[in-house]
Amino acid sequence: MGMNTGLVIAGVAGATALAISAAAIPFVAPALRRVCIPYVPATTEQLANVSRALSLATSSNSNKKGTLIDLGSGDGRVVLQCAREGFNSTGVELNSILVAYSKYRSIREGLGKETRFMRKNIFKTDLNPYQTAVIFGAESLMGDLVPKLSEMRSNTNLLACRFPLPENDAWKLEHQIGEGIDAVWVYKRN
């Protein structure tokens, strides 16, 4: 009898622990990712700097109105702005709430055809089709991104916002716009 009671208690305790673990997954999941970065939306100043950077990056070639990807697109504000400026823009974001909101916002603003939003890990996204990439990263992320960004073809553009790329052979720094947290670094793929 005592043995059975013990087994029941152990079973209940195990099931409870499992349920608690399952409930905690949405909150603990970021800890399991290779890089855990906070969500910080772009300010008006940053968006203005992105616009300036795009016009500089695409002035000397035919990339204008080309394909652009925002890596970690958040609430979609950068993607929508780039679409307004003539780019065929894609946003990649892990957070499903933000993806849902971005899609809703793009339709509401009449940009549903010019934009696309995907719930995807940026490290599992094929960057080869894109002529321009935008990344609002954290310092810890930029080093990890360099090998990933090498998927992009020669002569493509990269806009690194908030933090620059570490020195590397694949990307040549062409411009820096703004300073501090609003800074944008414009790179060209070698």
């Binding site: 905690a24 855990c36 969500y39 709430i97 933000l98």
Partner: peptide, 20 residues
């Protein structure tokens, strides 16, 4: 900041934070 944004923000990226 819209209120829905608060729903998924955490401080898990800080040192010594378990759930945040």
């Amino acid at each position: 900041m819209k209120l829905f944004v608060h729903n998924f923000m955490s401080s898990r990226f800080l040192k010594n934070v378990t759930v945040g």
